[in-house]
Write a protein that binds this DNA or RNA. Structure first.
Length: 220
DNA sequence: ATCCCGAGGG
DNA sequence: CCCTCTGGAT
């Protein structure tokens, strides 16, 4: 995508949603970290349903360790991959207490050393909790980047690097959320809703199926 | 490359 | 039924 089109692409998304935020619910950086770990291959809505009760009781890594593995599994049973995730969250909480004074570290290397935390999760925490200009490439951003031509790559890391190169100020801090929300609600995996997409004219993807005769009323 | 693994949508 | 959802570890 041309530079001018990239700027216009972000400008429109920014205009439509001036203050994008995570849809994951959390009350502090620790809870955010846990929520992001739980969100792997799961919907935000599903994670929120589970963490609502959990975070009411657990606000610190010490409290998570005290809660214990089996009780944690009960809380997150409705989320996919719950067995592995529960184990990682307990181990990660123990590591925070032992090595980081119970605080969430603000550097990538320390974050990625935590069990269950890879590059994508670290990028989300760095962006949301610390305001870093990181591009966490999840399934949505990978799809939107490649489909639109904004930032293409065969791997998530390649798309991340392409986004880093292509994304100008003042859009860098919020680019992650604009792209993910665009992917979740408009540029969907199965049925992208191009007829109501505000950047369709800048996009490389041209749908074969036209807009429905009776489109659903626009969401407020 | 494969495993982990549940809910919701089409 | 099959696909998708803010992946990570082996």
């Amino acid at each position: 995508m041309k530079k001018a089109d990239v700027f216009e692409f972000y400008r429109r998304l920014a205009e439509a949603n001036p203050h994008p935020e995570t849809e994951l619910e959390s009350g502090n950086a620790y809870q955010l970290l846990v929520a992001v770990v739980l969100s792997a291959q799961a919907t935000d809505a599903g994670v929120n349903t589970a963490t609502r009760a959990l975070f009411d009781r657990v606000k610190t890594p010490e409290q998570m360790v005290a809660l214990g593995l089996d009780a944690l599994k009960q809380h997150i049973r409705t989320i996919g991959l719950f067995n592995t995730k529960a184990k990682n969250v307990i181990a990660l909480s123990e590591a925070l207490v032992a090595d980081h004074g119970s605080a969430v570290p603000d550097d990538r290397a320390a974050l990625e050393r935590l069990p269950g935390v890879g590059r994508k999760t670290a990028n989300v925490v760095l962006n949301v909790a610390f305001g870093a200009e990181t591009f966490a490439v999840d399934t949505h951003i990978f799809r939107v980047g490649n489909r639109t031509g904004l930032a293409r790559g065969k791997t998530p890391l390649a798309v991340e690097n392409a986004l880093d190169k292509a994304t100008p100020q003042p859009f860098r801090v919020h680019a992650h959320h604009w792209l993910i929300l665009h992917g979740r609600y408009v540029c969907k995996a199965r049925k992208p809703e191009c007829w109501r997409c505000i950047v369709a004219d800048l996009c490389a993807f041209k749908p074969k199926t036209p807009a429905p005769r009776t489109p659903p009323p626009a969401t407020p």
